[in-house]
Design a protein around this nucleic acid. Sequence first.
DNA 1: GTCTATATAGCGATAGAC
DNA 2: GTCTATCGCTATATAGAC
Lengths: 215, 215
Amino acid sequence: MLVQKSVKKNVKGSVRQANYGKIIKAAVTVFATKGYQGATVQEVAEKAGLPKANVLYYFKSKQGIYEAVLSDILSLWNSSFDHATAQDDPAVALSRYIREKLEISRTYPEASKIFAMEMIKGAEQLSDEIKAGMVSWFQSRIAIIQQWIQDGKMANVDPAMLMFQIWATTQHYADFSAQISILKDGKMLNKKGFQDVGDYLCRSILSSCGLKVPE
Amino acid sequence: MLVQKSVKKNVKGSVRQANYGKIIKAAVTVFATKGYQGATVQEVAEKAGLPKANVLYYFKSKQGIYEAVLSDILSLWNSSFDHATAQDDPAVALSRYIREKLEISRTYPEASKIFAMEMIKGAEQLSDEIKAGMVSWFQSRIAIIQQWIQDGKMANVDPAMLMFQIWATTQHYADFSAQISILKDGKMLNKKGFQDVGDYLCRSILSSCGLKVPE
DNA sequence: GTCTATATAGCGATAGAC
DNA sequence: GTCTATCGCTATATAGAC
C-alpha cells in the first residue's frame, strides 16, 4: 500500500502516516462497493475509525481521496510485463503476464473494480498524467509484440486485440465476481479455482498466438 | 426497446407509452454515464423532455426507474445461443454467439455498462427473479456444452470458463470503450473494427476448443 | 393526467473551540 | 492536530392547484 509522505517532520509523522493508510484502505473498499457518487466521506471515516472532519483534514475533499486511491492502485499494478523485451520468449512472457494479472484480480479485486467503474463511466476523473502513462506503456508493449511477430516467434495477431483479450479475461474474475458467485450457487472461486483459470487462459490465449504453454 | 403496457385503456394510452419509452431511453444514458447514485431524476427528466415530477409520476421512485431499465436491458439480450441444442454444431453455435454478443456491445454499449456496474457493485439491486433466470439459463447452456464434449464434438474445456471468456472478451469492447479510445489516440472502433475483433475472437476461442471457424 | 412549489433528508465542506 | 457543531446545497419525493 502506497503511503504518501508527511511534509512535516514532527513526532506525529507516524500518526499521520498511519491515518493516511487507514483512510486509503477504507476508501478503496467503499469506492469499490458504492462507486464514486455512492461513497460518502462519513462511511470512509467510520471504516477508518476516524471522525469525518479528520478525513477531510488529511484529504481536503472527497475528490482528493479518490485521486489518492487511484494512484495508490496504480502502484500495485506493476508487473513483469513492464520489463519484457523483444529478446524474451513470448510464450514465457505472455503466460507470466496472464498469471500475474489473474493473481492481482484475486488479491486486489477492489482495485480492479474501482478502475473498471472509472473506465465504464468514461474515465473523466482520470488525470491526463495517468492517461499519458497508460498510452506510453501500451505503445511500448505493442511494439515488442510486433517485433516478436516480425521475428517469427509467434503468429501474426493484432497486438492490441491480444492485450485487450488478456485484460478482459483476467479482470473479469475480479470485476464480475458477484456474477460468478451467483452462477456458481454462491461459491466464490478459491485459490485452486484461480489456478485452473490461469491454466485455461494461458492455453487458450497462447494457442491462438501459435505458442505452447512453457514446461 | 421494451415498453411496458398501460394498465388503463384510455385514449391517452399512447401518450403514456411514449413517455415510458422516452424516460427509459433517457435513463439508460444517464445511468450508464453516471452510475446509479450519480444519476439524478432531474437529468433523466431533462433528457426525456419532461418535468421531473412527471417522471416520478410514471415511475414512483428512482429505484423504480432503475429496475425498469434493468429489465428493459434483459429483453435486448436474447440471442441465438438461447436456442442452441446438443444437436447443433458447436463451431457454428459458438461463433454465432460470439459475434452476436459483440454486435450487442457495439449497438447497445450503455446497456452493457449498466449491467457491468451493477455486477461490480455486488448485484445488490438485482432482483432474485432476475438472478434465478440467469442461473437457469447458464446451467442449461453449460449442459449443452458438456454434451458436445461428451459427443467428441469439441475439446474438453471447462464450459463455465468458456462462457466467462466469451462474455469478458465481447463485453470488454462496450464497457472499456473509454480505455480503448484513450489507447488508440481518441479513435473509436468503427463497424469494420468490430468485424476484425469478431474474426479474431472467433479464431482464438474456437481454436482453444479444438474447433475451426466455419466457412 | 400534468405541473409548480415545497417538504424533508443527507451530502460535502468548514468554522472555531480545545 | 483533533473534533463538535453547523452551514449551504442538492437530492428525492410529494402535496395540491390546475
